[in-house]
Each structure stands twice: as C-alpha cells, then as structure tokens.
C-alpha cells in the first residue's frame, strides 16, 4: 500500500486535512481577505487579464475571492465540486508568475498557491497533456 502525504480517495475530500491546512494559514489569509478593498487596481498588473480581453474573471482579486475566499467561507462543507472549481481558477486562470501588484500589500501569489496546495492535498490536479 502506497502511503503518501498528498493523497485522498476520489470520492470525498478529506475534510480534516483541508481544515488543518486552512487553520495553519488562517491568520494571514483572513487578514488578506479583510484588507482587500475590492478596488480592482490589481487588474492591470495581471497579464492574463490583459490578454484575455479584460475579462473580469482573470482579475487577481476576483480569482482570490472566488478560490481561497470561498474555501474559508465553506470550511467543513467543502465538497469535490467546489474543489474542482477552485482547481480551474488556481491553475487555468493563474500561472503564478508573481507579477500581480496589490496597492494594499495583499500577497496574492501566496493565496493562489495555498489554493493549489489544498487541491494537491486532495489529488485534484490539472491535466497538462489535455491542455495543449
């Protein structure tokens, strides 16, 4: 039997593991989510936002609020569908180039990477050979 740290069966997400990751980073992430002024000034710093026809779903704050923000809101009620949506946001709408700039100092890349870590812990991954 292979035992791995990042594992999980394919039916139900391991809530305890997600919660432990969420709680470990709670203070910082809650602070980020609280100080985000929803000002949308981060939009222009994202190259994906600029190339994808200025579609608001590519705006850094939109990505953060809808991925890590929703995970913190749902907590125990996180299900596989939500994680699949978070996966879409964390991988397909962000390449983690760390060039986004928040005037209020929110560390956006660390939030996206935490969302990715949570997906990874449940073995929810992007399919690199399907994309191109």
């Amino acid at each position: 039997m292979v035992k791995t740290i990042q594992t999980g069966n394919n039916k139900l997400p391991d809530t305890e593991k997600i919660l432990s990751i969420l709680n470990k980073n709670k203070k910082r992430m809650k602070m980020y989510l609280r100080i985000c002024a929803h000002c949308s000034l981060c939009a222009e710093s994202c190259f994906l936002y600029n190339t994808k026809n200025k579609d608001p779903v590519y705006m850094p704050s939109h990505k953060v609020i809808n991925s890590i923000g929703r995970l913190y809101k749902k907590k125990r009620k996180i299900d596989r569908n939500l994680l699949e949506e978070v996966k879409e946001i964390a991988w397909k709408r962000c390449v983690l180039c760390t060039r986004c700039y928040c005037p209020l100092g929110v560390d956006i890349p660390s939030m996206i990477s935490l969302a990715r870590t949570i997906c990874r812990s449940q073995n929810i991954l992007p399919e690199f050979h399907e994309q191109s």
Binding site: K3, T4, L96, T98, P109, S113, R120
Partner: peptide, 23 residues
C-alpha cells in the same frame, strides 16, 4: 523503506518551500 511524496509549486522559489519546513 518508506517513500512518501509531496509536490510544491516551484522549488526554485523560497516562498513555495516554506510549507515543506515542518514535514
């Protein structure tokens, strides 16, 4: 031998190695 796995975003950046520190 027990072999376990962990994947980080990018080991070439310190920021993403922090999560490894405790394991």
């Amino acid at each position: 031998i027990l072999i376990e796995g962990y994947t980080v975003e990018r080991p070439c950046n310190n920021q993403y190695l922090i999560e490894l520190d405790e394991i």
